[in-house]
């Protein structure tokens, strides 16, 4: 189809799904993790949470679809990856459960202790997956121990290499900057200014860390053309940091998004045509061809994806348009949660 092998189309589509996931959930991870730093009082904390309130759940579906698409298009990849990265994914799952429930439940009881607990859950459960996705993708690119049956032979600790930890720090810091810029884009007044300053400070740390990771990736695993995406990722991050300080949040957010897109492109570009290289037995390496489903399945999936994806993009873009306005302090309504304790009077 279109002069591309079906397996390549699906490699591209899965790269696209992960890119969408990181760009979108990237900022809501960042916003969640910075809740404690940015939200100085309850009104501001609610403003921070409400910038992503209507959006985070739709963002997370990009992950579900990326997982489902990997299962359908490259079952061997899905099987080796998910069983191999077992404990890392367990932690990610616990975090995603925690933050999802925390967003929904934090305002359900009008009590400071209740809210503080859920805030801690939001902060921790946003930061941890932001870090772990970088660790996971650095490992995917660098390769992991797989035997000839494509079974993972390492442990959780095997995944914690210096390169992978640098990858984790990169996604964490870039998502934090992305999230801080998003808050400055969606709020006004003092909170907006604090988000500027925070984005700037985090950016100064993120630039060298992400730069180091990108250069390492390029030198160890990159292709000729990934130099372009490496340069773009690094340049966009520097640009974002410069612009956010001047109040150009729209452009700054576009540039942090470009950084994430270009970084993901670098990772998938370096990986291709492998999908999970083996660091121990070359026969264990999974590629777009030996991990793939049959052409019949890939063909059906391609048509479904072509028909449905544009519609999804259109309505998700519309939902961003509906909630485009900045949130002021006056926008936050009175708390509607239940009183802290059960009423004493019973019928």
């Amino acid at each position: 189809m279109f002069g591309l092998a079906l397996t390549d189309i699906w490699f591209l589509l899965i790269a696209l799904l992960w890119t969408g996931y990181f760009v979108l959930e990237g900022f809501d991870f960042g916003v969640g993790a910075l809740l404690g730093v940015l939200g100085r009082d309850e009104t501001d904390r609610r403003r921070v949470v409400n910038t992503i309130g209507p959006l985070w759940d739709g963002n997370e579906v990009w992950l579900i679809v990326a997982g489902g698409a990997t299962f359908a298009a490259f079952p061997e990849w899905y099987a080796s990856l998910f069983s191999g990265f077992y404990l890392a994914l367990l932690i990610v799952l616990v975090a995603l459960i925690g933050r999802g429930v925390a967003f929904e439940y934090r305002g359900k009881v009008d009590d400071d202790r209740w809210r503080r607990r859920w805030d801690a859950v939001i902060i921790g459960c946003s930061a941890v997956p932001a870090l772990l996705w970088g660790v996971a993708f650095a490992n995917i690119v660098a390769g992991v121990p797989l035997d000839a049956d494509h079974e993972y032979t390492g442990t959780f600790v095997t995944l914690l290499t210096p390169y992978a930890l640098l990858g984790g720090l990169t996604t964490l810091l870039v998502f934090l900057v992305h999230g801080a810029v998003f808050v400055s884009l969606k709020t006004d007044g003092d909170l907006r200014l604090r988000a500027h300053r925070l984005a700037l400070r985090l950016g100064l740390v993120a630039v060298p860390v992400a730069g180091g990771f990108l250069v390492w990736t390029q030198l160890a695993h990159g292709k000729g053309w990934t130099l372009v995406s490496v340069a773009l990722a690094a340049g966009a991050l520097v640009g974002a940091v410069l612009l956010v300080g001047r109040g150009r949040e729209g452009w700054a957010f576009t540039l942090t998004a470009v950084t994430i897109v270009a970084t993901t492109v670098t990772l998938f570009g370096s990986l291709y045509p492998d999908v999970l290289p083996s660091s121990t037995d070359p026969a264990g390496t999974l590629t777009t061809t030996n991990a793939a489903s049959t052409p019949y399945t890939l063909g059906i999936m391609t048509w479904v994806a072509l028909a449905v994806t544009p519609i999804v993009l259109a309505y998700q873009a519309w939902s961003y348009w509906v909630f485009r306005r900045r949130l002021t302090r006056d926008d936050i309504p009175a708390a509607t949660g239940l009183p802290p304790r059960e009423p004493v009077v019973r019928q």
């Binding site: 739709g58 079952p75 899905y78």
Partner: peptide, 22 residues
Amino acid sequence: GDIFGAPLAIEGLLAFFLESTF
């Protein structure tokens, strides 16, 4: 995977996006 994955992926694309976004 060749069979079971497809409805799972389509479920996400067709149903979960619709459900969560709306």
